[in-house]
């Protein structure tokens, strides 16, 4: 397996891909893509997920669901790095005819597990996959990334109640807890605290980690797959726009592409 240092340097190159592809598209969501990078890199390149780019629909695979679909750029960058899609596709993000749609689109890119973009639905979909794996006696685990704003949605908590009740220990949810949603900071709209207690009260195994510390991320994901009877939630404390100084905690970059000058500055910082 790759060392933590190697994973970190991979994370940096994924960040470069993200800002480049969003700049080329002229629109997109850098903030919530950059906050997910360590998590995605650990999942795909840290020997966490059982996956194979040569057999993307392999029956025993683990599955990844990007419930916060607007973070599609980080998913595309990781899928390209892992060899599922050509890196040449990255600059076609959001362009007419591209398989790299603004939000993940299963019809246009069939190696995806599901389409997303309307927030709040990914855990339920993941539950369906987890139940199917259980029924078919398959080993696959289901990893789902949700946003902290996204968990405002009632469906998230219906799903949480269900997964706890049904002991879906093959279900692993990662909350990208970057503190912001679209209009403002979470705490100005709906305070989520105490967040860990909420999930624990729904009978989930809960871990709270620094979502940019690769060793913690990797360690938590490794443990997550081993819970005996509960679904696991990893609350990853992250920084929106992580890695690019002027995007960090600057919610202007929730859904705005960098200009050319901003792109050069971002790339210089990500050297």
């Amino acid at each position: 397996m790759r060392t933590i240092i190697e994973l970190n340097s991979l994370a940096k190159s994924i960040r470069r891909d993200i800002v480049k592809m969003i700049a080329a598209a002229g629109s997109g969501h850098p903030g919530g893509s950059l906050s997910l990078v360590e998590i995605m890199v650990a999942l795909y390149f840290g020997d966490i997920m059982n996956h194979d780019a040569k057999d993307p629909k392999g029956k025993n695979r683990d599955r990844f669901v990007l419930s916060k679909g607007h973070a599609a750029p980080v998913l595309y960058a990781v899928l390209a790095e892992a060899g599922y899609i050509s890196k040449d596709l990255l600059p076609t993000l959001r362009k007419l005819g591209s398989p790299l749609q603004g939000h993940p689109d299963l019809r246009k890119l069939d190696i995806l597990e599901i389409s997303s973009g309307s927030l709040g639905q990914g855990i339920s979909v993941g539950i369906g996959m987890a139940l199917a794996a259980r029924l078919d006696h398959l080993p696959g685990k289901i990893y789902i990334a949700v946003g902290d704003g996204e968990i405002n949605e009632g469906q998230i908590w219906e799903a949480a109640l269900f997964a706890g009740h049904h002991h879906l220990n093959n279900l692993i949810v990662i909350v990208d807890h970057n503190g912001f949603q679209l209009d403002e900071a979470n705490r100005k709209i709906l305070d989520l605290n105490p967040l860990a207690d909420k999930w624990a009260a729904f009978n989930w195994n809960v871990m709270v980690i620094d979502g940019h510390d690769m060793a913690s991320v990797h360690g938590a994901l490794q443990k997550a797959g081993q819970s005996a009877e509960k679904p696991t939630v990893i609350i990853a404390k992250t920084v929106k726009g992580k890695g690019v100084s002027f995007m960090e905690n600057n919610n202007k970059f929730h859904g705005m592409a960098p200009t050319e000058t901003e792109l050069s500055q971002a790339l210089a910082e990500l050297e």
Partner: peptide
């Protein structure tokens, strides 16, 4: 509004009458 006030432009109303504006979150 449901966390899209800057896109729907209900934020104009919020700026003028904050006491009569409710952002319910993504719900």
């Amino acid at each position: 509004d449901a966390d899209l006030s800057k896109s729907t432009y209900s934020n104009y109303f919020q700026a003028r009458y904050p006491e009569r504006f409710i952002n319910v979150g993504i719900a």
